[in-house]
């Protein structure tokens, strides 16, 4: 079966029906291991002390905020170029999940920044570009809700999403391009990660766990969206059927009155 065959919503529903229990199980197990490693096994950082434990959730949230947007951008490309039936379903389903992870990235970053930097917030390039990403998510969700027809909404959102994708490399490289209070990349670097395995492994396990969580939630949200569109189609058919019956009834009544025998009633005189 080719990947493109998955663009069939019915096949997607069948496949995810079988896949989701495994995905939920993998998410729960990896999250339990990741949180255990983060909270009980990983050592304190020599500079930041125990607050490094915030990193084990903050960094996965940051990665997923960009990953969810990348999923939306790929789906948007599919909507505009190939008009895949599942493309805008995928883009629409990912938006609120991406927004939630971005919000959590900002909140946990702020809670980490206060004890380490002495401030909840600074308008540096990294923090500001992530805030812009969060606002873009909200704008995209709003646009989905503004246009009633999902096909038209999908096209408008796809254009907005692809234009907004310019923010993703800005977020990634903001710490290199500008002088920021936020630290530079310490995992995805040309010369390898700058942290020891005792900290890196719990971080990667948590990143995997939250990625599995994203996939699980994304698939369920996509299934909901497919059902929502089926409901919309059924309601439209029902309304069209009702309108058709009403038109037919009116037409039959009009024909019947046109062919009915003339009555011998005298015209009613107007009162003098």
């Amino acid at each position: 079966m080719a990947i493109i065959d998955l663009a069939n919503p019915t096949r997607f529903m069948r496949l995810t029906d079988r896949l989701l229990p495994w995905l939920v199980g993998a998410t729960v197990v990896s999250m339990a291991i990741g949180l255990y490693l983060a909270l009980y096994v990983s050592p304190e950082d020599y500079q930041q002390g125990a607050t490094v434990k915030i990193m084990y959730i903050h960094v996965p949230f940051a990665w997923l905020s960009m990953f969810a947007y990348t999923v939306m951008a790929i789906a948007s490309f599919g909507t505009l170029v190939w008009k895949h039936p599942l493309s805008d379903v995928s883009a629409k389903a990912a938006a609120p999940i991406g927004a939630a992870f971005t919000f959590l990235c900002l909140v946990t970053g702020s809670l980490w920044g206060k004890p380490m930097w002495g401030t909840w917030w600074v308008w540096d390039a990294r923090l500001t570009s992530v805030l812009v990403l969060f606002i873009m998510y909200l704008g995209i969700i709003a646009l989905w809700r503004t246009i009633e027809d999902p096909i038209r909404a999908g096209k408008a959102v796809a254009v907005l999403t692809l234009v907004g994708y310019i923010n993703i490399p800005i977020i990634k490289f903001s710490v290199n391009w500008w002088n920021t209070l936020h630290q530079p990349a310490s995992v995805v670097r040309m010369d390898g990660p700058s942290m020891p395995p005792s900290i890196l492994i719990p971080l990667l396990v948590n990143a995997l766990a939250f990625t599995l969580l994203f996939m699980t939630l994304h698939f369920i949200a996509m299934r909901s969206e497919i059902l929502r569109r089926r409901i919309r189609t059924l309601r439209q058919h029902e309304a069209a059927g009702a309108a058709g019956v009403a038109r037919a009834t009116t037409s039959v009544q009009a024909t019947a009155s046109a062919h009915s025998p003339k009555t011998n009633k005298a015209p009613v005189e107007a009162p003098s």
Partner: peptide
Amino acid sequence: GNHPGFILAS
């Protein structure tokens, strides 16, 4: 450590 409130809140 020294900042349990921030970690727990996160």
